[in-house]
Simulated assay, not measured.
Amino acid sequence: MTAPHRHPHTDPAAHPEHRHDHRQDGHADDHGHDHPSGLKGWLHEVFVPHSHDAADSIDDALEASGQGIRAVKISLVVLGLTAAAQLAIVAISGSVALLADTIHNFSDALTAIPLWIAFVLGRRAATNRYTYGFGRVEDLAGLFIVAMIALSAIVAGVESVRRLAVPQPLDNLGWVLAAGVIGFAGNEAVAVYRIRVGRRIGSAALLADGVHARADGFTSLAVVLGVIGVWAGFPLADPIVGMLITAAILVLLWGTARDVGRRLLDGVDPDLTQRARHTLERTAGIEHVTDVRLRWTGHRLAIQARVCLDPDMTITMADQATAAAAHDLRHALPAVGDVDITTTAKPAHPAITGR
């Protein structure tokens, strides 16, 4: 048997694992995804507004957290004004049903507070106990928001069934319609804003909060459509539309729970994994990519890779190769945080075996 050639600087026996931990911020290019077009594409965007693992994420972690906190603050103000406007209509119309819906909107607006706390905690440095930092608090907030969306679906469904079984007349229809329009407009504006920022910074939790606002907007839309149905001489329109809206919220719930659950289980878009592998394979000096692992920590993407280098490389050349690989990864993938590349030497000549 012919023994493989090993360079003294990259010999695995002398340097079993040559580790390079690159934590500098870089640039993340956008990348395209295939989407349905036309009406199907619009429906897909409304009901399944998933993040594509943050294709549009920005680079700097502190800036991303700052944008997340700003989005939460603005959302709280808009939803607060929406609920206040509905409360004014309640005072004028005296509708108990509208009062209950207004209280519901106020409570839903406050669900953004755990996400605000998560963004603040995510900025804290790692400790001896939490050595990976506190980015996962954001994913826990996303789990809480998923639970709130589920609660919205349950409340809407139970109320619709109750009104279908025991029809109740709607009073002050004009005021009810006005409150529903205000509720839908305010919640949908917040939903669009949260989803856009969530995609930009790579936050599944903020996306989930946007979906939560959209679910509440659908509930208000059900009120509007119900009033129109009653005016058209079909009093059962209110509970029937409510049941349809409940089904729509369940669709939103499924997509959001899937995305948040994947984050908690360290799932990523397979396209990101393939792009990371191809980027490493194209880096000069890297002969073979043994393993690539990606995971989200909050809204930052951590990358670990094990590669084999050209056996004729020196340690300095190996450092340059891995630095170039980390730089290329930050250009090829979104919201990259830590990049940890472990290198070993590849034999200069393959071993010859025989019987």
Rank of each mutant, 00 (worst) to 15 (best):
L79Y: 02
I117R: 12
P36S: 13
I113H: 08
I117S: 01
N105V: 01
V46H: 02
L121V: 02
I92G: 04
W116R: 14
I58T: 14
A54S: 11
H104T: 07
A55S: 13
A61R: 10
I69T: 11
A125W: 03
L81K: 10
G66I: 06
L76Y: 02
G32F: 08
A97Q: 12
R123N: 08
T111F: 07
L43Y: 10
V120E: 15
D34Q: 06
S37D: 07
D101L: 12
V72S: 10
A91H: 09
G80C: 12
A126M: 03
F47Y: 15
A64D: 03
A126L: 04
A85K: 01
T127A: 09
A54T: 01
T102H: 05
A88E: 12
F106S: 00
P36A: 15
P114S: 05
V46K: 04
R70H: 06
H52L: 06
T131H: 07
Y132Q: 11
G135Q: 08
L115F: 08
V90Q: 04
D59A: 15
A71L: 05
S51A: 13
I113W: 12
V137F: 14
I58C: 10
H33K: 05
G38D: 00
V77G: 10
G41A: 05
H52N: 12
S107Y: 08
A64P: 09
Y132P: 00
H104A: 10
P36C: 12
L81E: 02
P114M: 08
S107T: 10
A83G: 07
L87T: 11
D59C: 04
G32L: 12
A118F: 03
D56V: 01
R124S: 13
I103K: 04
L79W: 09
A83E: 11
D56G: 11
V72I: 12
V137K: 00
D29S: 10
H104F: 10
V77Y: 15
S51I: 07
N128R: 15
V72G: 06
V96H: 12
R129K: 14
W42N: 03
E138W: 03
A125I: 03
G68F: 01
W42S: 05
A71T: 07
D34N: 02
K73I: 14
G94W: 13
T102P: 05
S107L: 14
T102W: 04
F119N: 07
T127Y: 10
G94C: 12
R136F: 14
L79M: 15
G68I: 00
H44L: 01
A83L: 07
